[in-house]
Design a protein around this nucleic acid. Sequence first.
DNA 1: CAGATATACAAACGATCGGTCGTTAATGTA
DNA 2: TACATTAACGACCGATCGTTTGTATATCTG
Lengths: 210, 210
Amino acid sequence: MTHDGRRLRGLRSREAILEQAVGLASVEGLDGLSLGRLAAATGTSKSGFFAHWRDKEQLQLDAVDWAARQWAERVIAPAMAAPAGVRRLFALHEARLGFYGEGVLPGGCFFFAVQAEFDDRPGPVHDRVARAMREWQEFIRRQVAQAVAQGELAESVDAAQLAYEIDALGEMVVVHSRLHGGPDSLVHARRAVLQRLRALCPDPTLLPED
Amino acid sequence: MTHDGRRLRGLRSREAILEQAVGLASVEGLDGLSLGRLAAATGTSKSGFFAHWRDKEQLQLDAVDWAARQWAERVIAPAMAAPAGVRRLFALHEARLGFYGEGVLPGGCFFFAVQAEFDDRPGPVHDRVARAMREWQEFIRRQVAQAVAQGELAESVDAAQLAYEIDALGEMVVVHSRLHGGPDSLVHARRAVLQRLRALCPDPTLLPED
DNA sequence: CAGATATACAAACGATCGGTCGTTAATGTA
DNA sequence: TACATTAACGACCGATCGTTTGTATATCTG
Protein backbone atom coordinates (compact mmCIF):
# COMPACT_ATOMS: atom_id res chain seq x y z
CA MET A 1 0.00 0.00 0.00
CA THR A 2 3.04 2.26 0.17
CA HIS A 3 4.56 4.31 -2.67
CA ASP A 4 6.46 1.67 -4.53
CA GLY A 5 7.89 1.48 -8.02
CA ARG A 6 4.81 -0.03 -9.59
CA ARG A 7 2.54 2.75 -8.47
CA LEU A 8 5.15 5.34 -9.37
CA ARG A 9 5.40 4.04 -12.90
CA GLY A 10 1.63 3.93 -13.07
CA LEU A 11 1.37 7.52 -11.90
CA ARG A 12 3.94 8.65 -14.43
CA SER A 13 2.13 7.22 -17.42
CA ARG A 14 -1.15 8.33 -15.94
CA GLU A 15 0.10 11.91 -15.82
CA ALA A 16 1.56 11.67 -19.31
CA ILE A 17 -1.74 10.41 -20.68
CA LEU A 18 -3.72 13.12 -18.91
CA GLU A 19 -1.42 15.83 -20.25
CA GLN A 20 -1.94 14.56 -23.78
CA ALA A 21 -5.67 14.21 -23.17
CA VAL A 22 -6.00 17.82 -21.98
CA GLY A 23 -4.02 19.08 -24.95
CA LEU A 24 -6.07 17.11 -27.44
CA ALA A 25 -9.33 18.00 -25.70
CA SER A 26 -8.48 21.70 -26.01
CA VAL A 27 -8.73 21.13 -29.77
CA GLU A 28 -11.41 18.51 -30.28
CA GLY A 29 -13.25 18.51 -26.97
CA LEU A 30 -13.48 15.81 -24.37
CA ASP A 31 -15.97 13.75 -26.32
CA GLY A 32 -14.55 14.45 -29.73
CA LEU A 33 -11.31 13.04 -28.42
CA SER A 34 -11.41 9.28 -29.05
CA LEU A 35 -9.50 6.67 -27.10
CA GLY A 36 -8.01 5.37 -30.31
CA ARG A 37 -6.41 8.68 -31.22
CA LEU A 38 -5.36 9.29 -27.63
CA ALA A 39 -3.67 5.89 -27.67
CA ALA A 40 -1.87 6.74 -30.89
CA ALA A 41 -0.76 10.11 -29.47
CA THR A 42 0.59 8.60 -26.27
CA GLY A 43 2.14 5.58 -27.96
CA THR A 44 0.12 3.12 -25.91
CA SER A 45 -2.78 0.78 -26.58
CA LYS A 46 -6.46 1.53 -26.19
CA SER A 47 -7.03 -1.26 -23.73
CA GLY A 48 -4.19 -0.04 -21.53
CA PHE A 49 -6.36 2.89 -20.43
CA PHE A 50 -8.69 0.61 -18.55
CA ALA A 51 -5.93 -0.27 -16.11
CA HIS A 52 -6.11 3.38 -14.99
CA TRP A 53 -9.74 4.36 -15.57
CA ARG A 54 -12.96 2.40 -15.35
CA ASP A 55 -14.37 4.05 -18.48
CA LYS A 56 -14.00 7.11 -20.66
CA GLU A 57 -16.02 9.29 -18.33
CA GLN A 58 -13.59 8.71 -15.48
CA LEU A 59 -10.74 9.80 -17.73
CA GLN A 60 -12.73 12.89 -18.70
CA LEU A 61 -13.28 13.78 -15.05
CA ASP A 62 -9.59 13.39 -14.26
CA ALA A 63 -8.73 15.46 -17.32
CA VAL A 64 -10.88 18.30 -15.97
CA ASP A 65 -9.05 18.12 -12.66
CA TRP A 66 -5.69 18.04 -14.40
CA ALA A 67 -6.58 21.10 -16.48
CA ALA A 68 -7.76 22.93 -13.37
CA ARG A 69 -4.45 22.18 -11.67
CA GLN A 70 -2.54 23.39 -14.73
CA TRP A 71 -4.59 26.58 -14.68
CA ALA A 72 -3.84 27.12 -11.01
CA GLU A 73 -0.12 26.65 -11.57
CA ARG A 74 0.32 28.60 -14.78
CA VAL A 75 -2.20 31.42 -14.41
CA ILE A 76 -3.28 31.90 -10.81
CA ALA A 77 0.03 31.22 -9.08
CA PRO A 78 2.10 33.72 -11.13
CA ALA A 79 -0.56 36.38 -10.63
CA MET A 80 -0.43 35.90 -6.87
CA ALA A 81 3.10 37.29 -6.98
CA ALA A 82 1.64 40.72 -7.66
CA PRO A 83 0.52 42.77 -4.64
CA ALA A 84 -3.11 42.21 -3.70
CA GLY A 85 -5.63 44.62 -5.16
CA VAL A 86 -6.03 46.06 -8.59
CA ARG A 87 -2.50 45.14 -9.65
CA ARG A 88 -3.07 41.48 -8.85
CA LEU A 89 -6.37 41.63 -10.69
CA PHE A 90 -4.71 42.89 -13.84
CA ALA A 91 -1.81 40.48 -13.40
CA LEU A 92 -4.37 37.70 -13.38
CA HIS A 93 -5.82 38.94 -16.65
CA GLU A 94 -2.40 39.27 -18.22
CA ALA A 95 -1.34 35.82 -17.01
CA ARG A 96 -4.40 34.38 -18.71
CA LEU A 97 -3.70 36.18 -21.95
CA GLY A 98 -0.11 35.00 -21.72
CA PHE A 99 -1.28 31.43 -21.28
CA TYR A 100 -3.30 31.74 -24.47
CA GLY A 101 -0.70 33.67 -26.40
CA GLU A 102 2.16 31.30 -25.60
CA GLY A 103 0.16 28.39 -26.98
CA VAL A 104 0.58 26.23 -23.90
CA LEU A 105 -2.33 24.12 -25.11
CA PRO A 106 -2.66 23.45 -28.84
CA GLY A 107 -6.35 24.40 -28.74
CA GLY A 108 -5.76 27.53 -26.68
CA CYS A 109 -8.06 26.82 -23.76
CA PHE A 110 -9.22 23.48 -22.45
CA PHE A 111 -12.14 24.93 -20.53
CA PHE A 112 -13.47 26.95 -23.41
CA ALA A 113 -13.74 23.86 -25.59
CA VAL A 114 -15.21 21.75 -22.81
CA GLN A 115 -17.70 24.39 -21.69
CA ALA A 116 -19.12 24.67 -25.18
CA GLU A 117 -19.33 20.89 -25.33
CA PHE A 118 -20.98 20.18 -21.99
CA ASP A 119 -22.99 23.29 -21.13
CA ASP A 120 -26.12 21.58 -22.42
CA ARG A 121 -25.34 17.97 -21.57
CA PRO A 122 -26.21 17.02 -17.99
CA GLY A 123 -24.02 14.51 -16.22
CA PRO A 124 -20.96 14.20 -14.00
CA VAL A 125 -18.63 15.90 -16.49
CA HIS A 126 -20.98 18.87 -16.80
CA ASP A 127 -21.10 19.18 -13.02
CA ARG A 128 -17.36 18.98 -12.60
CA VAL A 129 -16.74 21.60 -15.29
CA ALA A 130 -19.44 23.85 -13.86
CA ARG A 131 -17.87 23.63 -10.41
CA ALA A 132 -14.40 24.46 -11.73
CA MET A 133 -15.76 27.44 -13.64
CA ARG A 134 -17.76 28.61 -10.65
CA GLU A 135 -14.66 28.48 -8.47
CA TRP A 136 -12.69 30.44 -11.06
CA GLN A 137 -15.39 33.07 -11.37
CA GLU A 138 -15.66 33.23 -7.59
CA PHE A 139 -11.90 33.67 -7.34
CA ILE A 140 -11.97 36.67 -9.65
CA ARG A 141 -14.89 38.09 -7.69
CA ARG A 142 -12.93 37.82 -4.44
CA GLN A 143 -9.97 39.65 -5.99
CA VAL A 144 -12.31 42.43 -7.07
CA ALA A 145 -13.88 42.61 -3.63
CA GLN A 146 -10.46 42.80 -2.03
CA ALA A 147 -9.41 45.61 -4.33
CA VAL A 148 -12.56 47.48 -3.33
CA ALA A 149 -11.84 46.84 0.35
CA GLN A 150 -8.31 48.19 -0.12
CA GLY A 151 -9.72 51.33 -1.70
CA GLU A 152 -8.12 50.54 -5.04
CA LEU A 153 -11.50 50.30 -6.75
CA ALA A 154 -14.49 52.61 -6.34
CA GLU A 155 -16.95 51.49 -3.67
CA SER A 156 -19.74 51.56 -6.21
CA VAL A 157 -18.20 48.58 -8.01
CA ASP A 158 -20.39 45.47 -8.14
CA ALA A 159 -17.86 42.65 -7.71
CA ALA A 160 -19.87 39.98 -9.53
CA GLN A 161 -20.57 42.39 -12.38
CA LEU A 162 -16.94 43.35 -12.87
CA ALA A 163 -15.82 39.73 -12.51
CA TYR A 164 -18.16 38.74 -15.34
CA GLU A 165 -16.75 41.47 -17.54
CA ILE A 166 -13.12 40.54 -16.90
CA ASP A 167 -13.78 36.86 -17.48
CA ALA A 168 -15.82 37.37 -20.65
CA LEU A 169 -13.30 39.76 -22.19
CA GLY A 170 -10.49 37.31 -21.46
CA GLU A 171 -12.24 34.16 -22.53
CA MET A 172 -13.38 35.30 -25.95
CA VAL A 173 -9.78 35.86 -26.97
CA VAL A 174 -9.44 32.14 -27.59
CA VAL A 175 -11.92 31.83 -30.41
CA HIS A 176 -11.44 35.29 -31.88
CA SER A 177 -7.71 34.94 -32.28
CA ARG A 178 -7.97 31.43 -33.71
CA LEU A 179 -10.80 32.15 -36.07
CA HIS A 180 -9.49 35.41 -37.47
CA GLY A 181 -5.81 34.70 -37.19
CA GLY A 182 -4.36 37.94 -35.94
CA PRO A 183 -3.36 38.89 -32.38
CA ASP A 184 -5.79 41.83 -32.50
CA SER A 185 -8.12 40.24 -29.99
CA LEU A 186 -5.27 39.84 -27.49
CA VAL A 187 -4.63 43.56 -27.70
CA HIS A 188 -8.35 44.34 -27.45
CA ALA A 189 -8.87 42.08 -24.46
CA ARG A 190 -5.87 43.49 -22.64
CA ARG A 191 -6.77 47.10 -23.27
CA ALA A 192 -10.45 46.59 -22.44
CA VAL A 193 -9.74 45.32 -18.94
CA LEU A 194 -6.87 47.75 -18.38
CA GLN A 195 -8.92 50.82 -19.24
CA ARG A 196 -11.90 49.51 -17.29
CA LEU A 197 -9.76 49.06 -14.17
CA ARG A 198 -8.03 52.41 -14.60
CA ALA A 199 -11.38 54.14 -14.88
CA LEU A 200 -12.55 52.58 -11.62
CA CYS A 201 -9.26 53.02 -9.76
CA PRO A 202 -8.73 56.17 -7.67
CA ASP A 203 -4.99 55.81 -8.22
CA PRO A 204 -4.48 54.84 -11.85
CA THR A 205 -0.73 55.00 -11.51
CA LEU A 206 -0.95 51.53 -9.99
CA LEU A 207 -1.61 50.26 -13.50
CA PRO A 208 0.37 50.67 -16.73
CA GLU A 209 -0.86 53.37 -19.07
CA ASP A 210 -1.12 51.07 -22.06
CA MET B 1 -36.23 23.50 -64.77
CA THR B 2 -38.98 25.76 -63.43
CA HIS B 3 -40.34 25.88 -59.86
CA ASP B 4 -42.58 22.83 -59.86
CA GLY B 5 -44.13 20.72 -57.13
CA ARG B 6 -41.29 18.27 -56.84
CA ARG B 7 -38.69 20.90 -56.19
CA LEU B 8 -41.05 22.72 -53.85
CA ARG B 9 -41.53 19.59 -51.76
CA GLY B 10 -37.80 19.06 -51.81
CA LEU B 11 -37.15 22.60 -50.63
CA ARG B 12 -39.68 22.24 -47.85
CA SER B 13 -38.12 19.15 -46.36
CA ARG B 14 -34.70 20.61 -46.98
CA GLU B 15 -35.59 23.64 -44.88
CA ALA B 16 -37.16 21.46 -42.18
CA ILE B 17 -34.05 19.32 -41.97
CA LEU B 18 -31.76 22.36 -41.79
CA GLU B 19 -33.84 23.90 -39.01
CA GLN B 20 -33.55 20.71 -36.99
CA ALA B 21 -29.84 20.46 -37.80
CA VAL B 22 -29.13 23.99 -36.57
CA GLY B 23 -31.06 23.36 -33.37
CA LEU B 24 -29.30 20.10 -32.66
CA ALA B 25 -25.92 21.56 -33.61
CA SER B 26 -26.41 24.36 -31.09
CA VAL B 27 -26.35 21.61 -28.46
CA GLU B 28 -23.95 18.98 -29.74
CA GLY B 29 -22.03 20.82 -32.41
CA LEU B 30 -21.97 20.25 -36.14
CA ASP B 31 -19.74 17.21 -35.91
CA GLY B 32 -21.21 15.80 -32.72
CA LEU B 33 -24.53 15.78 -34.53
CA SER B 34 -24.79 12.44 -36.32
CA LEU B 35 -26.84 11.76 -39.41
CA GLY B 36 -28.60 8.91 -37.62
CA ARG B 37 -29.89 11.12 -34.82
CA LEU B 38 -30.76 13.88 -37.26
CA ALA B 39 -32.76 11.34 -39.25
CA ALA B 40 -34.59 10.22 -36.11
CA ALA B 41 -35.32 13.84 -35.13
CA THR B 42 -36.71 14.73 -38.54
CA GLY B 43 -38.59 11.46 -39.00
CA THR B 44 -36.76 10.61 -42.19
CA SER B 45 -34.15 8.09 -43.21
CA LYS B 46 -30.40 8.57 -43.22
CA SER B 47 -30.08 7.78 -46.88
CA GLY B 48 -32.69 10.37 -47.75
CA PHE B 49 -30.19 13.10 -46.89
CA PHE B 50 -28.00 12.23 -49.80
CA ALA B 51 -30.71 13.29 -52.21
CA HIS B 52 -30.19 16.84 -50.89
CA TRP B 53 -26.50 16.91 -49.92
CA ARG B 54 -23.50 15.17 -51.39
CA ASP B 55 -22.03 14.43 -47.96
CA LYS B 56 -22.16 15.56 -44.36
CA GLU B 57 -19.88 18.51 -44.96
CA GLN B 58 -22.26 20.01 -47.51
CA LEU B 59 -25.05 19.78 -44.97
CA GLN B 60 -22.82 21.45 -42.39
CA LEU B 61 -22.06 24.30 -44.77
CA ASP B 62 -25.74 24.82 -45.52
CA ALA B 63 -26.50 24.70 -41.80
CA VAL B 64 -24.03 27.54 -41.23
CA ASP B 65 -25.76 29.59 -43.91
CA TRP B 66 -29.18 28.78 -42.47
CA ALA B 67 -28.07 29.85 -38.99
CA ALA B 68 -26.60 33.07 -40.37
CA ARG B 69 -29.93 33.82 -42.06
CA GLN B 70 -31.80 33.12 -38.84
CA TRP B 71 -29.44 35.46 -37.01
CA ALA B 72 -30.01 38.19 -39.58
CA GLU B 73 -33.78 37.85 -39.30
CA ARG B 74 -34.14 37.46 -35.54
CA VAL B 75 -31.33 39.67 -34.22
CA ILE B 76 -30.10 42.12 -36.81
CA ALA B 77 -33.40 42.98 -38.48
CA PRO B 78 -35.28 43.90 -35.28
CA ALA B 79 -32.35 46.04 -34.13
CA MET B 80 -32.41 47.96 -37.39
CA ALA B 81 -35.78 49.32 -36.36
CA ALA B 82 -34.01 51.47 -33.77
CA PRO B 83 -32.60 54.82 -34.95
CA ALA B 84 -29.03 54.62 -36.16
CA GLY B 85 -26.34 55.39 -33.64
CA VAL B 86 -25.89 54.40 -30.06
CA ARG B 87 -29.52 53.37 -29.66
CA ARG B 88 -29.29 50.91 -32.53
CA LEU B 89 -26.05 49.61 -31.10
CA PHE B 90 -27.69 48.85 -27.79
CA ALA B 91 -30.79 47.49 -29.49
CA LEU B 92 -28.52 45.05 -31.29
CA HIS B 93 -27.06 43.91 -27.99
CA GLU B 94 -30.48 43.54 -26.42
CA ALA B 95 -31.83 41.66 -29.43
CA ARG B 96 -29.00 39.20 -29.06
CA LEU B 97 -29.62 38.72 -25.37
CA GLY B 98 -33.31 38.27 -26.15
CA PHE B 99 -32.47 35.62 -28.71
CA TYR B 100 -30.54 33.73 -26.06
CA GLY B 101 -33.02 34.34 -23.26
CA GLU B 102 -36.05 33.22 -25.23
CA GLY B 103 -34.38 29.91 -25.96
CA VAL B 104 -34.93 30.11 -29.71
CA LEU B 105 -32.27 27.43 -30.12
CA PRO B 106 -32.13 24.60 -27.60
CA GLY B 107 -28.38 25.05 -27.21
CA GLY B 108 -28.57 28.84 -26.91
CA CYS B 109 -26.26 29.81 -29.75
CA PHE B 110 -25.38 27.87 -32.88
CA PHE B 111 -22.29 29.90 -33.63
CA PHE B 112 -20.85 29.62 -30.16
CA ALA B 113 -20.97 25.82 -30.30
CA VAL B 114 -19.62 25.71 -33.84
CA GLN B 115 -16.84 28.22 -33.22
CA ALA B 116 -15.52 26.19 -30.32
CA GLU B 117 -15.67 23.09 -32.49
CA PHE B 118 -13.99 24.40 -35.63
CA ASP B 119 -11.67 27.18 -34.51
CA ASP B 120 -8.76 24.74 -34.61
CA ARG B 121 -9.85 22.48 -37.47
CA PRO B 122 -8.96 23.82 -40.91
CA GLY B 123 -11.33 23.14 -43.75
CA PRO B 124 -14.34 24.52 -45.60
CA VAL B 125 -16.57 24.59 -42.52
CA HIS B 126 -13.95 26.50 -40.55
CA ASP B 127 -13.67 29.03 -43.36
CA ARG B 128 -17.41 29.50 -43.70
CA VAL B 129 -17.86 29.98 -39.95
CA ALA B 130 -14.91 32.36 -39.81
CA ARG B 131 -16.38 34.43 -42.63
CA ALA B 132 -19.78 34.63 -40.96
CA MET B 133 -18.20 35.68 -37.68
CA ARG B 134 -15.99 38.23 -39.41
CA GLU B 135 -19.02 39.74 -41.11
CA TRP B 136 -20.88 39.93 -37.80
CA GLN B 137 -17.94 41.56 -36.05
CA GLU B 138 -17.54 43.93 -38.97
CA PHE B 139 -21.22 44.80 -38.79
CA ILE B 140 -20.93 45.77 -35.13
CA ARG B 141 -17.82 47.78 -35.92
CA ARG B 142 -19.70 49.74 -38.59
CA GLN B 143 -22.50 50.52 -36.15
CA VAL B 144 -19.93 51.84 -33.68
CA ALA B 145 -18.25 53.92 -36.37
CA GLN B 146 -21.58 55.36 -37.41
CA ALA B 147 -22.42 56.29 -33.82
CA VAL B 148 -19.07 58.07 -33.61
CA ALA B 149 -19.75 59.85 -36.89
CA GLN B 150 -23.13 60.98 -35.57
CA GLY B 151 -21.46 62.37 -32.47
CA GLU B 152 -23.24 59.87 -30.24
CA LEU B 153 -19.97 58.33 -29.14
CA ALA B 154 -16.76 60.12 -28.16
CA GLU B 155 -14.34 60.62 -31.03
CA SER B 156 -11.62 58.86 -29.07
CA VAL B 157 -13.50 55.55 -29.40
CA ASP B 158 -11.65 52.81 -31.25
CA ALA B 159 -14.41 51.10 -33.23
CA ALA B 160 -12.75 47.70 -33.46
CA GLN B 161 -11.91 47.81 -29.77
CA LEU B 162 -15.44 48.61 -28.67
CA ALA B 163 -16.88 46.09 -31.11
CA TYR B 164 -14.75 43.38 -29.55
CA GLU B 165 -15.97 44.31 -26.08
CA ILE B 166 -19.64 44.32 -27.04
CA ASP B 167 -19.37 41.01 -28.84
CA ALA B 168 -17.40 39.29 -26.09
CA LEU B 169 -19.71 40.49 -23.33
CA GLY B 170 -22.73 39.27 -25.30
CA GLU B 171 -21.34 35.96 -26.42
CA MET B 172 -20.20 34.69 -23.06
CA VAL B 173 -23.76 34.86 -21.79
CA VAL B 174 -24.49 31.57 -23.53
CA VAL B 175 -22.14 29.40 -21.57
CA HIS B 176 -22.32 31.27 -18.28
CA SER B 177 -26.10 31.12 -18.05
CA ARG B 178 -26.24 27.47 -19.04
CA LEU B 179 -23.42 26.34 -16.83
CA HIS B 180 -24.48 28.19 -13.70
CA GLY B 181 -28.21 28.15 -14.23
CA GLY B 182 -29.24 31.62 -13.19
CA PRO B 183 -30.03 34.61 -15.41
CA ASP B 184 -27.33 36.62 -13.63
CA SER B 185 -25.09 36.65 -16.66
CA LEU B 186 -27.88 38.11 -18.80
CA VAL B 187 -28.14 40.99 -16.35
CA HIS B 188 -24.37 41.40 -16.20
CA ALA B 189 -23.97 41.36 -19.97
CA ARG B 190 -26.77 43.88 -20.46
CA ARG B 191 -25.52 46.25 -17.81
CA ALA B 192 -21.89 45.99 -18.88
CA VAL B 193 -22.61 47.19 -22.42
CA LEU B 194 -25.19 49.72 -21.30
CA GLN B 195 -22.87 51.43 -18.81
CA ARG B 196 -19.99 51.30 -21.27
CA LEU B 197 -22.06 53.03 -23.95
CA ARG B 198 -23.47 55.58 -21.51
CA ALA B 199 -19.98 56.45 -20.34
CA LEU B 200 -18.86 57.09 -23.92
CA CYS B 201 -22.03 58.90 -25.01
CA PRO B 202 -22.17 62.70 -24.78
CA ASP B 203 -25.96 62.45 -24.40
CA PRO B 204 -26.66 59.52 -22.07
CA THR B 205 -30.38 60.20 -22.14
CA LEU B 206 -30.45 58.37 -25.46
CA LEU B 207 -30.02 55.17 -23.46
CA PRO B 208 -32.05 53.74 -20.57
CA GLU B 209 -30.65 54.35 -17.12
CA ASP B 210 -30.71 50.68 -16.15
C1' DC C 1 11.26 -18.46 -3.17
C1' DA C 2 5.92 -18.41 -3.95
C1' DG C 3 1.86 -15.73 -4.50
C1' DA C 4 -0.51 -11.64 -5.12
C1' DT C 5 -0.85 -7.35 -7.54
C1' DA C 6 -0.48 -4.02 -11.15
C1' DT C 7 0.88 -2.51 -15.90
C1' DA C 8 0.13 -3.15 -20.38
C1' DC C 9 -1.14 -5.54 -24.38
C1' DA C 10 -3.60 -7.98 -28.68
C1' DA C 11 -7.80 -9.53 -30.15
C1' DA C 12 -12.35 -9.26 -30.49
C1' DC C 13 -17.18 -7.51 -29.21
C1' DG C 14 -21.64 -5.04 -30.44
C1' DA C 15 -22.95 -0.48 -31.63
C1' DT C 16 -22.72 3.36 -34.37
C1' DC C 17 -20.46 6.20 -37.65
C1' DG C 18 -20.63 8.35 -42.65
C1' DG C 19 -21.67 6.69 -47.03
C1' DT C 20 -23.21 3.53 -51.22
C1' DC C 21 -26.47 0.90 -53.85
C1' DG C 22 -30.64 -0.40 -55.89
C1' DT C 23 -35.41 0.33 -55.74
C1' DT C 24 -40.10 2.44 -55.36
C1' DA C 25 -43.50 5.95 -55.93
C1' DA C 26 -44.60 10.32 -57.33
C1' DT C 27 -44.18 14.11 -60.39
C1' DG C 28 -42.79 16.23 -64.23
C1' DT C 29 -41.94 16.49 -69.69
C1' DA C 30 -42.36 14.89 -74.66
C1' DT D 1 -49.21 7.61 -73.19
C1' DA D 2 -44.08 6.91 -72.86
C1' DC D 3 -40.07 8.50 -70.70
C1' DA D 4 -37.03 11.21 -67.49
C1' DT D 5 -36.34 13.07 -63.15
C1' DT D 6 -36.71 13.45 -58.32
C1' DA D 7 -37.62 12.49 -53.33
C1' DA D 8 -37.27 9.02 -50.26
C1' DC D 9 -36.40 4.55 -48.70
C1' DG D 10 -34.35 -0.20 -46.73
C1' DA D 11 -30.37 -2.84 -46.80
C1' DC D 12 -25.85 -3.02 -46.47
C1' DC D 13 -20.65 -1.56 -46.47
C1' DG D 14 -16.04 -0.76 -44.17
C1' DA D 15 -14.31 1.96 -40.48
C1' DT D 16 -14.27 3.45 -35.96
C1' DC D 17 -16.36 3.95 -31.56
C1' DG D 18 -16.07 2.54 -26.30
C1' DT D 19 -15.52 -1.65 -23.94
C1' DT D 20 -14.54 -6.62 -22.51
C1' DT D 21 -11.72 -10.61 -22.22
C1' DG D 22 -7.73 -13.17 -21.67
C1' DT D 23 -2.83 -13.08 -21.30
C1' DA D 24 2.04 -11.94 -20.56
C1' DT D 25 5.23 -9.47 -17.73
C1' DA D 26 7.08 -6.82 -14.21
C1' DT D 27 6.98 -5.56 -9.42
C1' DC D 28 6.05 -5.90 -4.57
C1' DT D 29 4.71 -8.90 -0.36
C1' DG D 30 4.93 -12.95 2.58
